[in-house]
Amino acid sequence: MNQALFPPVIVDGVEISASSIAAEAQNHAAPKGKPGLAWRKAARALIVRHLLLREAEALGISAEPRALGNGRRETIEDAQIAALLDQTLEAEVVSDEDVKAEWERDPSRFKTPPLWEASHILCETEGAAKALIIELNEGARFGDLAKEHSQCGSAEAGGFLGQLSPNDTIPEFEIAMSALEEGAITQTPVQTRFGFHIIRLDAKEDGRQLPFEAAQNRVREALERAAWVQAARSYTSELMDKAQIEGIILPAEAPKKETAI
């Protein structure tokens, strides 16, 4: 991105540098050939961050960074922003009637997760996997080839992986597995960071629709989350409306309807 085409942004006399916006733009998607869109998204994000931090400091809000898992912790600034929003926002209360109405709008959205039983053969090279697929199509036994050739610990069990739920495997594997019919084998090796997989779907069970009693907590949490997001959007828009912003024209953010699913 050519930073010379995009000036710094000034928020109430404080500069947000072009280099900062360019770095932030890497986190915002935009159509190919339209870097200005990613730039505006990044600028808006940094403007909002600046205004929230300034508001937290004005209110004397401090916060202890929380652990995020995997040895990571949030930054002091992120902790301040979270504390500000927790203290300031007043989200719309979600009533029992709201929850029931949201569920009745389309009950089929609320289901148990699907389940799969699958086996695989893991090969180091694509060529080796393709050769085994030919053997399988000619009648070779999947379990025998898995025991002899698979580079996975499941080889001893004939490649059987057991019962799998969403997110139990890496995305490429799950996408290929879930597209299969029961008993079918992938006809093209599935490449992941571990190597090349031949996948057989042994059984599958589609998610079952949940009754209201089982789904209501999930619906309530989603509605409360949507109400919080709307309150945060309104709050940040108010801060931006009060600020003097130079160097960029930001169109008003279109209102978005938040739904439970």
Rank of each mutant, 00 (worst) to 15 (best):
L5T: 03
E15G: 00
E15N: 01
S19G: 00
S20H: 09
A22G: 11
A25F: 04
Q26P: 00
N27Q: 12
H28A: 05
H28P: 06
A29N: 08
K32G: 04
K32T: 07
K32H: 08
K41I: 03
A42Y: 05
A42D: 03
A43L: 02
R44M: 05
V48M: 03
H50V: 00
A58R: 13
L59Y: 01
L59F: 01
G60Y: 04
G60H: 04
I61M: 10
S62T: 15
S62Q: 13
A67M: 08
G69W: 12
G69D: 04
N70I: 06
R72P: 00
R73P: 00
R73Y: 12
Q80C: 13
A82Y: 08
A82I: 07
A82N: 12
L85W: 06
Q87A: 13
Q87T: 13
L89R: 10
L89E: 03
S95Q: 08
D96R: 15
D96W: 07
V99W: 03
E104Y: 00
E104H: 06
D106F: 11
S108E: 13
S108R: 14
F110T: 03
P113N: 12
I121R: 06
E124F: 06
E124W: 04
E126H: 11
A128H: 08
A129K: 09
A129V: 07
A129E: 05
I133K: 08
E135N: 09
N137T: 06
E138I: 04
R141H: 03
F142S: 01
G143I: 00
A146G: 01
E148P: 04
H149V: 14
G153L: 11
E156T: 14
G158I: 03
G158L: 01
F160C: 03
G162N: 07
L164I: 11
S165E: 13
N167M: 12
D168R: 10
D168G: 08
T169W: 03
I170A: 12
E172S: 15
F173L: 14
E174W: 09
M177P: 08
M177Q: 11
S178V: 11
S178C: 06
A179Y: 04
L180Y: 07
E181C: 01
E182P: 08
G183T: 01
G183Y: 01
G183W: 01
I185E: 06
T186G: 08
T188C: 04
P189N: 11
T192V: 10
T192N: 11
F194S: 12
F194R: 14
R200Q: 15
L201D: 02
A203F: 01
E205Y: 02
E205A: 14
D206L: 09
G207A: 03
G207C: 03
R208K: 15
L210G: 04
P211W: 07
E213A: 15
A215T: 05
Q216E: 13
L223I: 07
L223V: 05
E224W: 07
R225V: 00
A226R: 11
W228P: 00
W228E: 13
A231Y: 05
A232C: 08
S234K: 14
S234V: 05
Y235G: 05
S237M: 09
L239G: 08
D241S: 10
D241E: 14
K242D: 06
A243T: 02
I245M: 04
E246F: 10
I248G: 01
I249P: 00
L250F: 09
A252F: 02
E253T: 13
A254Q: 14
A254Y: 02
T259C: 02
A260R: 06
A260V: 10
I261W: 13
I261V: 14
